[in-house]
Structure formats: C-alpha cells, structure tokens
Design a protein around this nucleic acid. Structure first.
Lengths: 236, 236
DNA sequence: TGCATATTATTTGTCGACAAGAACCCGACG
DNA sequence: CGTCGGGTTCTTGTCGACAAATAATATGCA
C-alpha cells in the first residue's frame, strides 16, 4: 500500500445529493490541473475512503467523467485518467480554432449587457493571475474567460464542445507551463482586450478575425513548447 | 398503476457488464425514435423490473443519457425524457449546418479507401429504406450515413458534436415524418450521391458547398414542416 | 367550505455486502 | 529455463435494503 498523493478531505456532514457533485468537481479540477497525472489509475475504494462515502456516488461521478472523456474505463479492469494524445493533435487544433472563431463571432452578434459584466470580470481575473505570475490560475481563468464569451454567443451546442476543448487545452498548457514565460501572458491580455472591444462594438467580422488570430497564436505557442520539450528529452 | 407502454424484454441471463450497455442502447433508441415521448417520466424501479435487474445498472445508464442531454434529472425528484425546444431552434440549425460543412469537407480531405466502403454501405441502406417507404429506417440510416462521412473526416471532437446533433435531428424528423412525403427522400438520395462523389474526388470546396446546401435544404424542410404543423393546430 | 398543517406514500440517493473477472503469485512439468 | 496451470487476491459490477426528500393525501380548524 502506497500513501495517497492527494490530501484527504474533511467532509463531516453533507446533504443528500451533494456528494456526487462534490466528488465530480474536485476530481475534474485535479485532472485538468494535472494533479492527477494522465494514465494514473483510479481506485474506487480508495476514493471512497478519501471522501468518506460509499462507492455508489463515487461511481456516478466517474461515469460522468468518462462521458466527457476525462477518464478511460477498461471493463472489469482498472479505470484511469485519460491520456493526452500527442501524436495527432491537429484535429484538436482544428476544432479549437473553429470554435474560437464561431463563439467569438456569435458573442459579437448576440451579446447582452449582462454578458459583458461577466466577460469583464473573467478578464479581470485573468489579468490578476498574470500579474501575480500564478500559472495555474492563469490557465484556469483564461479558459473561464473564453467560456464566458461562448456563453454570450448563446449556442449550447457550440458551448459544450468548446468547453471540452478548453478543458483539454488546460491540461496541455498545464503540462508546459510548469515554468511559465511571462511575455506570452501579457500578449494574451492585450488580445483579450481587443476581442472584448470587438464584441462590444458588435463587429462580427473583426471578432471572427481576432478569434482566429488568437487561436492560431495559441496553437503556435503550444507547438513551440512541445518541440522545445521534445528537444530537451532527446538531448539527455 | 398504468400499464407500461413499452414491451417487457426477455433477458434470461447476461454477462457481467453487459447490462448497462443493453439498457443504454435500448433506451437511447426508444428516445430517439420517440417511442418514449419527450417529457414522459422515467421510473427507475419500473425499468428495473422491466429489464429484470437491479436499479444500479439502470441508474448508470440514466446518468450516461443525462450526460448526453437525452434525459433531464430533477434532483431528488423525477427524471424525464428531455423535451424538444421548439422556441429557439436557430442555435441547433446553426450548429448542424456548420458541422455538415466541416465534416463533409474533412471527409473529402482525409478519407481512406475503407471509409468509402462504409459510406457506400450506409448510402445503400438509406436508399433501401427510401425504396421501402420505411420512415423510421430512413431517419436512422440517414443519420448513420452522415455519421460515417464524419468518421472519414477523422476529427473525434467534431464527430461527437455532430453525432449529438444528428440524434437531436432524428427526434425532430421522427416527429414530422409520421406521414412521410416521398418526394423529399429521393432528393436526399441524389444529394447524398453528389456528396459521395465530391468526397471520392477529394474536392474539398465542392464538398463544403454540398454540405452547406444539404444542411440548408434540410433546415428549410424542417421549418416548413413545423409551420405546417402549427397551422394545423391553430386551425382546430 | 376553504386553508393551513400533519401524515402518508412514492421516488430517489446512499450504503454495505457479495460475486464475477482479471491480474498476480507460485509451483510443477516439459 | 521457460511455460503452463491452479489458486489467491484485488478491483469492479450487481444486488437488496434503508434513509432522506419531495409529492400526495388526509386531517383539523376557522
């Protein structure tokens, strides 16, 4: 028996239906922040005693996570955190770019005043994270910022796909931003400001261009980081 | 106690992990074919005795269906088949059109010989259903045809969204094709043929145009059917 | 009779336990 | 020395039962 790497949680008493959501949210964050490494096994009984509840709600949370592709389940065998697929990332980049464009464009068309409040708040949180040099918060608030834009576009189908892509992106970014580069984040803040301005001005064409540029820029960054990482591995 | 509208299923003996998949597949088909009407309540114990198994696997299947948005769950209260949202369908149409375009275009670019076999087979099944005037089979095989094209595009993110949209579309079509119009299906067969030809020729631009045209045509058809239905309701 | 409240009933959420597969260990045999 | 087989252990899938939360019903009072 090896010691659990994750801290035990104090759950003195909980309400009837909150258990699943609690486990789901926490596991999801741990997976997206790479606190749970891709490929690492997930044991139901271990989680059960960690959260001090039965296996049933644990199981339901795992089923949900599996539905979103965050964990993989081998029948009658182990279940583990879904691996990141480095070999063919172009489908991911294609989908991410298209969703950046579409959601930003739709936001420029369908936004309402209350949406702008939320978007501005998320942008503020992201800027604060950049200022504080908190890589983990930067990644999370960046995803939240774009999710808020998508929300203003008011297309639940695009939103769900985009959320999934942003989640996947969180894991990639987390992987390479162990040591962060502080030049890039400031550029992101500026690009975000431009996107917000286009959305406020209801300039759909400009929003589309900015979304595309932002996506291509982030894709280039990830690819550059990946190549750099691989070089490092080879040089050893 | 009212009698169950759905037939009891004979399940003499089953293997260890097959129960969930069985229930999931069957319920999913019944929902998509409107055998289970939108808004109708789903009782766990009733399903349990219908499938002659415990509530646990039933519950897991329901959780999965809820994850795909096919059923809605009120906490601590009833769970029911998800309603069709007629009021704002434009997000649905927007997403469907975009996915038609993207998947067809990607299929023209990334297709392999073995993909064409599958696509041709699906197209044949659709044509057979049209010939047999089997509305239910037409709807299902049409969705399978487009899913096969999307598969040839090799982008799992687009595929999952497109599958969800096609499922939703199955429910709408099933609603209005109780009495089918035999002019439309033949047009679909022809348009499908043109799409296959463009995919074989690797003509991405043409594939995009055909995908867009096909989508807009089907959207127009659904809208026309909806208006006709509403007229009928008002005229009573 | 009408309304507020208490009681019952139904359905879901959670639990502990058992059994089926699969991995693991270990010895025997070629 | 490697491979096959049997037993063991460990994890998951399933079960029946209980408890909580809500809906439905009944009861009491003005």
């Amino acid at each position: 028996m090896k010691a659990t790497k994750t801290k035990a949680v104090a759950v003195p008493e909980r309400k009837r239906g909150s258990g699943v959501k609690f486990v789901y949210d926490l596991l999801r964050d741990e997976i997206l922040d790479l606190a749970l490494q891709p490929g690492s096994p997930i044991d139901e009984v271990q989680l059960a005693e960690r959260f001090q509840m039965s296996r049933t709600p644990i199981r339901e949370a795992l089923v949900r996570l599996a539905g979103e592709g965050l964990i993989d389940t081998l029948p009658n065998r182990s279940t583990m955190v879904a691996n990141l697929d480095f070999l063919n990332m172009s489908p991911f980049f294609d989908a991410l770019t298209l969703m950046y464009r579409v959601t930003t464009q739709l936001a420029a068309r369908n936004r309402r005043p209350e949406d702008l409040e939320v978007i501005r708040a998320r942008q503020g949180e992201f800027a604060a994270a950049v200022k504080a040099q908190d890589a983990l918060a930067m990644i999370a608030t960046n995803a939240a910022f774009h999710a808020a834009i998508a929300e203003a576009g008011r297309n639940p189908y695009f939103n769900s796909l985009f959320s999934r892509l942003l989640d996947e992106g969180r894991r990639f970014l987390r992987l390479y931003y162990q040591s962060y580069d502080d030049r890039l984040p400031q550029q992101f803040v500026d690009e975000h400001e431009a996107m917000v301005a286009a959305i406020i001005a209801r300039d759909t064409a400009l929003a589309d261009r900015l979304g595309k540029a932002h996506a291509e820029q982030i894709v280039q960054q990830i690819q550059k980081l990946m190549i750099g990482k691989e070089r490092l591995d080879i040089s050893l």
